[in-house]
């Protein structure tokens, strides 16, 4: 059983405080949806958790299975079992997905020789054209192809906790479904015998939740969680919008 514990997290970007005391816990097999209006700092949370340069943590703690993530570099956080699917996956010309996963395997002492076969089988499950695996990361890909590619990387890297930042943006219905099915399979069965995946899905719309079926929904406003509940909270949000939670 893995556990990502965030307690009283404060962070700022260029002198502006974006996170103001956020606390939550994500365990193996759980799907959490963090929902908030545009500009509320949801993506800041995913970047702070993954250690993106330019974000300053000013208070609070983040641990994964007791390990202080804030003391680790980004690759060390990934090696510890954290994965981030970005809202806007970055284009990296001339670099293929296999090279990246192989380097990540080498860095964590895993045998990289099986990576091409793993990629091929996961690509098939996600409806990714095999030719896409030969191309540069995210270069000239549609929004849906980028998100499928990120999901593919997650499936092969087999993290313990995945942060899915607006993974539904830019996705058509078919892509949203195949990405969601893959994530769901990981939250129930884990990756190849490992413990089930814990998910923190960050989203603006309730659309994703119809596919991803969260166990917990958190309303995120003004840098902190203002209400947490079960899936019914998403229904209330769908009916009333964020207005009810904004002062």
């Amino acid at each position: 059983m893995s556990e990502l514990v965030i307690e009283g997290l404060h962070a700022r970007v260029s002198e502006r405080e974006i996170l103001r005391g956020l606390s939550m816990t994500v365990r193996s097999g759980e799907v959490h949806a963090l929902m908030g209006p545009n500009g509320s700092g949801k993506s800041t949370l995913s970047h702070v958790l993954m250690g993106k340069p330019g974000y300053e943590v000013t208070g609070g703690t983040v641990t994964l299975d007791g390990v202080d993530l804030l003391e680790l570099t980004t690759p060390e956080r990934a090696a510890a079992g954290l994965f981030l699917a970005m809202q806007y996956p970055t284009e990296v010309p001339g670099v293929g997905v296999a090279e990246v996963i192989e380097e990540a395997f080498v860095a964590t002492g895993r045998d990289p020789s099986g990576v091409p076969a793993l990629l091929a089988s996961e690509a098939d499950a996600l409806g990714i054209e095999p030719t896409l695996l030969e191309r540069s990361l995210n270069v000239d890909l549609s929004g849906g192809e980028k998100k499928r590619s990120d999901t593919l990387q997650m499936a092969v890297l087999a993290p313990r906790i995945a942060l899915l930042d607006e993974i539904d943006s830019g996705l058509d219905v078919d892509a949203l479904r195949s990405v969601s099915r893959r994530v769901e399979r990981a939250t129930s069965q884990g990756f190849a015998g490992s413990e089930p995946l814990g998910v923190l899905a960050i989203t603006h719309y309730t659309r994703l939740l119809e596919e991803l079926h969260p166990d917990f929904v958190h309303i995120f406003v003004d840098g902190r969680i203002v209400e947490s509940g079960g899936p019914e909270l998403a229904d209330r949000l769908e009916a009333s919008g964020y207005a009810a939670w904004i002062n």
Binding site: M50, G51, K52, P53, T73, T74, P75, A78, A79, F83, L84, M86, P89, T90, V92, V95, V100, I101, E103, A104, A107, T108, L137, Q153, L157
Partner: peptide
């Protein structure tokens, strides 16, 4: 950052 977030040193 994108590559590092995949675990590449």
């Amino acid at each position: 950052f994108y590559l590092e977030s995949r675990g590449v040193p």
